[in-house]
Nucleic acid binder design. Structure first.
Length: 464
DNA sequence: GTTAGGG
DNA sequence: CCCTAAC
């Protein structure tokens, strides 16, 4: 990705932040992502865990995080080096976005040093007492990095000051120094040690690997590998469907996050966001139990059931989903049942008895035992019979004998269909739609109206 | 709710 | 066989 693209993306995110806050947006993403998960994994407690490209997500198929993951695209060494060039506020906000900058500044002193740390982070060359690598990993793994970077170019200073007023460790019991520590340039080893001891907290917040232990780090290859993955089609659909619904409930998160940017609060918020998703997901799963596919179909699936079927079928993987989709498509005519000769005879008889168009009557009186034949089916079959008979009539003279042998339909049946076709022409074949108006009061109207204006159907039952 | 018409 | 518009 080139620079322009990158900047464009950053600016987009900035707008989002101004409107609703990127925190909000991220949480939305979390929940949306959670919807896509067939099962929540224990080791991903929240958004950041999902974002952690180092974490092996297995079947979770992090492709679906592409929207978020795309933001990572530029968190590479080059961009990090570019960060160093930004004014001091850059790096501050860079970390303050995580409620974390104070810690860094305590340890590292000045911004440029942080920059250098970042610069070296991927190579793990900084091996001080501070377990910076894990922290930097967290930073690198966060999608907020590019956001902060972009914003720093414009209004970072103001925001940075705001952030500074809130200590990152205000609520951290092991860090009593709190806000003031930010200005304490001189470091002491004990602080570093504390930080090291509390690293799991930092890691938990930033990456949310609950108990990942010495997590894999410094794997730019893995990072890049993920970047090239495209969002799955399912993700796109789900994303577009659920986007509007999810946004409202999480409004106001930004306020909390910005004003109480302590680690605990951040963690709390994120866990809260996470907790919300499983319930929503379970509701989806519950609905799936009623999928029509799993039901014994004694009739045809209704229309609404089909819509259900297509839209709400969360599957673990894209492959499974596609396969299911394919099979569903193939099952479109699953209920098809071939018409037998007795059925055809019965249909012809019914038509001669009740007339063309009285499909429900025919169904009711002659096909009441065969539940799989709907009035629509009767009509369709009749339509096909007419077509077949007319086709056969055209070629009958030439190859009558052969036809009799080849045709699945006996000639007498065909003949009868043709007779009926003459008497009860299929609507629309002869006469216009308007002629069907008199269908209801046919017997009465037939007497009074001129014959030409009537549909032939109105003379049904004449030839019983 | 039923039917015609198109897919 | 399915879907939809028209009735």
């Amino acid at each position: 990705m080139d620079r322009e693209e990158y900047l464009g993306k950053c600016s987009n995110m900035k707008c989002q932040r101004v409107d609703e806050s990127y925190v909000h947006a991220l949480q939305d993403e979390v929940m949306e992502v959670e919807h896509l998960l067939a099962e929540p994994r224990n080791d991903h407690a929240s958004l950041d865990g999902s974002l952690d490209s180092h974490t092996t997500l297995n079947g979770k198929d992090d492709l679906e995080l592409e929207a978020l993951d795309g933001l990572l695209d530029d968190v590479e060494i080059n961009d990090l080096e570019g960060t160093v060039g930004f004014p001091g506020g850059t790096c501050e906000e860079y970390f303050l976005d995580f409620g974390f900058a104070d810690k860094f500044e305590e340890v590292l002193g000045s911004g440029p040093f942080v920059g250098s740390l970042l610069q070296n982070s991927s190579s793990e060359s900084h091996s001080s007492g501070l377990s910076g690598s894990s922290i930097v990993d967290g930073v690198l793994e966060s999608t907020e990095v590019p956001i902060a970077q972009s914003e720093c170019k414009n209004d970072s200073l103001d925001e940075t000051i705001t952030y500074e007023s809130h200590g990152a460790f205000r609520n951290n019991p092991s860090q009593p120094s709190k806000v003031n520590c930010r200005y304490n340039i001189s470091l002491d080893i004990q602080h570093l040690q504390d930080l090291d001891n509390n690293r799991h907290l930092a890691g938990g917040i930033l990456t949310c690997k609950k108990e990942k232990g010495p997590v894999e780090k410094g794997q730019p290859a893995a990072l890049r590998e993920k970047r090239f993955r495209k969002p799955t089609q399912r993700y796109i659909e789900e994303f577009s469907n659920s986007r509007s619904k999810e946004k409202a409930p999480t409004a106001g998160t930004k306020t909390k996050y910005l004003s109480d940017s302590s680690c605990d609060d951040v963690l709390h918020i994120r866990i809260k966001a996470f907790k919300k998703s499983p319930s929503e997901k379970s509701s989806i799963e519950n609905r799936d139990v009623m999928l029509p596919e799993l039901q014994v179909h004694k009739g045809r699936p209704k229309k609404e059931k089909l819509e259900y079927d297509i839209e709400s079928f969360p599957l673990e993987s894209e492959d499974e989903w596609l396969t299911s989709k394919r099979s569903r498509r193939k099952d479109r005519r699953k209920h098809q049942k071939m018409w037998t000769l007795p059925e055809v005879l019965k249909l012809v008889e019914g038509i001669s008895e009740y007339g063309v168009g009285r499909w429900t009557d025919i169904k009711r009186f002659l096909f009441s035992s065969t539940s799989y034949r709907t009035p629509i089916d009767l009509r369709d079959k009749w339509r096909n019979l007419l077509r077949a008979s007319s086709a056969q009539k055209s070629t009958r003279e030439a190859e009558q004998n052969d036809e009799l042998a080849l045709r699945p339909l006996p000639f007498n049946v065909v003949h009868r269909v043709q007779e009926l076709a003459k008497i009860h022409p299929y609507p629309r074949e002869r006469g216009s739609k308007k002629l069907r108006v008199s269908q209801a009061g046919s017997s009465v109207i037939a007497k009074d109206s001129p014959p030409l204006s009537l549909s032939k159907r109105n003379v049904r039952r004449k030839f019983t």
